[in-house]
Write a protein that binds this DNA or RNA. Structure first.
Length: 230
DNA sequence: GCGACAG
DNA sequence: ATCTTGTCGC
């Protein structure tokens, strides 16, 4: 029996120990297949949190027409929420629903952008890293706020960024000004990708807002507006 | 012991 | 994350 990628009903203490073990399996160098389809994932909640709603949007990536992106598939999956939100243990709460959404896809993406941290996590296993490990797919974490790590002030211009470092100096991500004079986003590789490559992809997928198109669209789908189904 | 704390 | 109107700005 190999260590499971996930188990339910784990006490926080055990969940943390599992994260430490799983983080050892992460690959932080590029092992990326040619990207033809990239996806954005985000989770939302309904019924005061009783229902978890996962949204995945798949975009077509064409080297010739880049950076033009077009949506080719989108899925929404709902299921009962089974874990509370505990800082540091977000993946245990969101991944089950995310997997349900991925299972409904007819096209599997070669790269996935996740709303949350990659390795910029206390035990280096943010939701993007955990999901990447599970799907064995390259993932990038794009968070709207900081969970851990220190960083200097970021320049005000779009594209400016500074490293996010953990105690000891290890670089675990980047604080990126994705829009001029707008609050920066926290980018960190999840799995099978380096920080540099992660930044490259986030930058090339930026549209009119501060979030890259994949997560921006998934955000819209997962949030209680956009009256669609899945 | 006292804060900090993705979504 | 979610609860929520109007309002400021391009």
């Amino acid at each position: 029996m190999s260590t499971p990628l996930h188990e339910w009903n784990l006490a926080p203490r055990d969940a943390m120990a599992l994260q430490t073990e799983l983080a050892k399996r992460l690959e932080l160098s590029d092992r990326l297949d040619p990207v033809r389809h990239l996806a954005g994932v985000d989770i939302g909640f309904e019924d005061g949190g009783a229902t978890t709603r996962a949204a995945v949007v798949v975009l077509k990536w064409d080297p010739d027409t880049a950076p033009d992106l077009s949506v080719i598939e989108q899925v929404v999956h709902r299921e009962p929420t089974r874990m509370p939100y505990i800082p540091g243990l977000l993946s245990f709460r969101e991944i089950p629903a995310a997997l349900g959404a991925f299972a409904k896809l007819t096209v599997q993406p070669e790269l996935v952008m996740v709303d949350g941290q990659g390795v910029a996590h206390p035990r280096r296993l943010g939701v993007a890293a955990h999901l990447g490990l599970w799907l064995d797919t390259p993932t990038i974490g794009i968070a709207k706020s900081r969970l851990t790590g220190r960083h200097a002030e970021v320049g005000e211009q779009r594209g400016d960024w500074v490293p996010l470092t953990a105690r000891g100096g290890e670089v675990i991500g980047a604080v990126l000004r994705s829009r001029t004079r707008v609050k920066p986003v926290f980018v960190s590789p999840g799995h099978r990708l380096s920080l540099d490559t992660s930044l490259q992809w986030v930058l090339r997928c930026l549209g009119a807002t501060k979030l890259p198109e994949p997560t921006r669209l998934a955000d819209r789908l997962a949030s209680r507006r956009d009256q669609r189904r899945g």
